[in-house]
Design a protein around this nucleic acid. Structure first.
Lengths: 353, 353
DNA sequence: CTGAAAGCGCTTACAG
DNA sequence: CTGAAAGCGCTTACAG
């Protein structure tokens, strides 16, 4: 067990005061260069590094960013793969600036609130993700003076902002792509209308249709909940109707996969009989058969953007928090039919009926 | 901006010394009950909670557990979904004991080592996952006096242990299941032999065959790297050979999915022409078609077990670190053919040749 | 049952 | 360029 060297040890062994050691190590200008070098060498030799606790105590800030992530809230399949990717970008972006991430446990020791625990730890800021934003706890946090950035949650406060994907544009690109492949009967399986991404992707669908001079057929709009099963059920409804759509835009990859399963059950081939486009580009999207054409969210970008946005709020208390919107990208694979000639719905006649 | 109440504020307003406040709040026995109640009430009123930094400084421990997780090391598709689930269990298990998790950024501000940063933060222990365990950095950490628990990594030191799945048993259960379905020509696509899970699952395959009185045909053992592409390539090799196997045990779900794709490309139906069983039970396993029969790892169990193991080492410095092995579970879905009657390889004659 | 005091390991005006 | 001192907010022997 190696005892930890303190600043006092350094001072003693280098023959200066602890104040000088502190200044030398922290890069203050007014330190004799030779003295500084001697101290730095000694620090390396003793493997010294300052106690974060002591530093936090005197500086009143910890160089830690709290992370509020209620892992139990969301069903694991959808949110997690996505948020995890975000965590990577976050860790990198924040780590580069010298911040460590503190995962605030969901249920504090004595049921303490997030605000309380944020202050208790003197975290410099907090990232919020994977939670129900309508909760009192979260609202309290957002309305507090703790700098905050949320991932894909519609949250704003005096020192709070969020980053989100350009859902409208993303949905539009999917519909336009389908249209370019010759489809006119384009349906959509939406997310919950009360969730921002759900609502926005529907708006994009509508706007695209309008731009293309197509009517929105109410029977072609079926609501799901972003998960596999509702995608499957919705697709069955779509396929059971009189006028089957030739193409479907699903507002999530999970629902798109459910739709593919439903198509198979109904004896419909994808993409020959019906084309399908998803949203998110989760890992599984490129593993299923047919591989899913989808609107990719910029997962790394989320983390980096959130890191930057948060740092901005932290460092400049007077800055107006700015919402960040990230571009999406249409990833063309097999489920839309573009890969095999883009013949679109015309192949329908060739297929089995 | 609400100023944070300190212990001094409490002392002043309750008319006692800060020592008494501290004792009252920390549940010491020798405090007048009435005084204690008064102080507790006041603490609630002022929304007081002690500064973690001050506490850490004097107690020399932070009630934080460090997490070493090099998110950039592994290809994101395999490790992440799994490790993320683990993180859930970890956060819950540790959170219940009053610990918060500190994600140690991979590249510290000045390239500081994990040991150094662990001590700097006075973390009580460290969880290691998703890293290359042969690294000097990791070895240094494991050999240090910092209590450590690793997830699915073969690591041990004076105060270090790890938790892993029972890979041998898991692999055996897969092979036995295939045998019970009538298969005799059972191949395997392995993980890298130098990685512990890869080696152990191969051992299980071999042992099962021996128990069943079957020979190990070297041509039936193809090495992969746990990822999709090598599974696909391996399956093509298997399918190109003279004696096609009628069943394949893949040592990961990703490889199993690659194998399914290869089978489709070769005009082979799964499970009619060839049965496939994977390992892991990642989220995608139940989404692909056919849905994957696989050996499930107990992801929640990992987190909980790791939390317990770590706490044990932390609280009792003299305890011998104990390796924890978690049971696996065979999840029967569609890719093995058991669902549709378990007719096994006999359906082969019915299929296309 | 309670208070005064020392101390955890730093940083930062304030003097010189 | 450097040192002595105060102070960050707690906990914990030590007296009484």
């Amino acid at each position: 067990v190696v005892p930890i060297a303190t600043i006092r040890d350094l001072a003693r062994r280098s023959g200066v005061s602890i104040a000088t050691v502190s200044r030398a190590l922290n890069g203050y200008a007014d330190v004799n260069e030779e003295t500084r070098q001697r101290i730095i060498a000694l620090a390396r030799e003793l493997d010294y590094s300052p106690s974060e606790a002591a530093r936090t105590l005197v500086r009143q800030r910890s160089q830690m960013i709290g992370v509020v992530w209620d892992l139990s809230y969301h069903r694991p399949d959808l949110q997690h793969p996505f948020l995890q990717e975000v965590l990577i970008g976050l860790k990198q972006g924040l780590g580069a600036q010298g911040y460590d991430l503190l995962l605030l446990s969901t249920f504090g020791p004595r049921g303490k609130s997030y605000v309380k625990r944020s202050k208790q730890h003197r975290v410099d800021g907090v990232v919020i993700m994977g939670v129900d934003e309508h909760t009192d706890e979260i609202q309290e946090l957002v309305q507090s003076d703790v700098p905050t950035v949320a991932i894909d949650l519609d949250i704003a406060g005096p020192r709070s902002t969020y980053v989100t994907s350009d859902n409208v544009q993303g949905a539009k690109s999917a519909v336009h792509h389908l249209h370019a492949l010759g489809h006119r009967a384009i349906a959509t399986i939406t997310g919950p209308h009360e969730m921002r991404p759900g609502a926005e992707r529907l708006v994009g669908y509508r706007e695209a249709l309008a731009e293309l001079g197509l009517e929105v057929d109410p029977r072609y709009v079926v609501e799901g909940d972003f998960y596999h099963d509702t995608g499957q059920a919705a697709m069955h409804r779509l396929l059971d109707s009189e006028d089957r759509p030739t193409a479907v835009f699903a507002a999530s990859d999970m629902m798109a996969m459910g739709a593919i399963r439903a198509a198979a059950e109904a004896g419909c081939r994808v993409p020959e009989d019906v084309a399908i486009v998803g949203f998110d580009d989760i890992v599984a999207a490129s593993l299923v058969q047919p591989r899913l054409t989808t609107v990719r969210q910029d997962k790394d970008g989320f983390g980096a953007a959130a890191a930057n946005a948060l740092i901005r709020v932290i460092e400049d208390p007077d800055t107006e928090p700015q919402v960040v919107t990230l571009p999406t990208e249409l990833v063309i694979r097999e489920s839309c039919g573009a890969a095999n000639g883009g013949s679109g719905p015309r192949t329908k006649e060739v297929g089995r009926t």
